[in-house]
Amino acid sequence: MVSVFAHAPGPSRRPREDLRRRLTAAILGGYLLASAWSVGIAMAWSAAAPGDSLRAADGVLIGAMSALVVCVLAVLWSFAAPSVRHAWAGLFAPAVILALLSILVAP
């Protein structure tokens, strides 16, 4: 019986509190990182040719389309990280770096 369901989702072995914190990190941290990513990529892309509205629009599209993938990866990371602290660190640190990048390259 165990072998049949070994590869299917079973009852969680994680403490409920850990699960709740990881879900919070996945939803809030994932959105935070995706938002920072979308802005950072858009700003960096448009910074190569300031004043070019076509390039700026391309940056916005690339940033948003790739941010959706980043959000998925962030959610996966939230559950794959060894601890909730690691999960938040892995989400928050790149978000801060991207936010700083978007401020630095702002026109």
Binding site: A42, A56, V60, A106
Partner: peptide
């Protein structure tokens, strides 16, 4: 619908 969920880049640049 991504510009509804992630409007921040367009908000900054446009």
């Amino acid at each position: 619908l991504m510009m509804l969920y992630l409007p921040w880049g367009a908000d900054r640049l446009f």
